[in-house]
């Protein structure tokens, strides 16, 4: 798994970062996006639907910032 620190980035930057880095994991691998931008809560799952990846779910980083986990499928 890789973790992308997108704290302080505004939309659509966290999703752009996710798209840029998803290829760094194997198919079936996980990418976590740590983002305090509120749009990421909706846009990471929407990106997964549009790009045919799996949205695994939301957790939190140790500092409480939301952490969105994606599984690469294609």
């Amino acid at each position: 798994m890789i973790e992308l620190d997108c704290r302080g980035l505004l939309c659509p930057a966290p999703v752009i970062e996710l798209a840029r880095r998803i290829g760094e994991v194997e198919v079936g691998g996980l990418v976590a996006v740590v983002a305090d931008d509120v749009a990421a809560r909706y846009d990471v799952p929407a990106w997964c639907r549009m790009k045919e990846h799996e949205y695994v779910g939301e957790g939190a980083a140790p500092d409480g910032v939301p952490r969105y986990v994606v599984r690469r499928l294609v």
Partner: peptide, 9 residues
Amino acid sequence: LAAMGALTH
């Protein structure tokens, strides 16, 4: 947009 699961940006 959020309620529909649409991209919001």
